[in-house]
Computed example of a mutant assay.
Amino acid sequence: MNNNTLPQEELKKYGIINEDNSFSKKLSSEDIEKFLNGYTIVADNEKNRIAFKLTDNNSRLNVNLFERDRDFEELLEKSKEKVQYSDVKKQYDIKEDKSPDQLNFSKLAFVFDKETNTVREYDMIKNASELTKVILEKNNALENEQYRLELQKLKNVLYDKIDQYPEIAKDIKNDLNIVDKEIDTISNVSENTLQKEKSVDLDVNDKDMYEDANREREEKFQDEREEEMDRPRGRGR
Rank of each mutant, 00 (worst) to 15 (best):
E121I: 15
I94P: 04
Q146H: 11
L142N: 13
E96D: 15
K98L: 13
I125E: 07
I125D: 09
F110D: 06
L136W: 04
K95L: 14
P100Y: 06
E145R: 08
S99N: 11
Y122I: 03
N144W: 13
R120Q: 10
D113Y: 00
D123F: 03
L136H: 06
K138G: 12
V88M: 08
N144T: 11
L136G: 07
E121N: 06
D93I: 09
D87I: 09
L158T: 02
D113W: 00
E143D: 12
E96V: 14
T116W: 00
K138Y: 04
K98F: 15
F105R: 05
A109D: 08
M124R: 04
V88S: 12
M124T: 09
K138M: 13
L131Q: 07
E130L: 07
E96C: 09
Y147G: 04
N117I: 00
S86T: 14
N144G: 10
V134Y: 04
S99G: 14
A109E: 08
L154M: 09
L136S: 09
Q146F: 12
L149S: 14
N117R: 02
N140H: 06
L154A: 00
Y85A: 01
K155L: 13
Q84F: 07
E121R: 06
L158N: 04
T132S: 14
E115C: 00
D97K: 10
L108P: 01
Q152C: 02
I125K: 02
Q84H: 05
T132P: 00
V157Y: 12
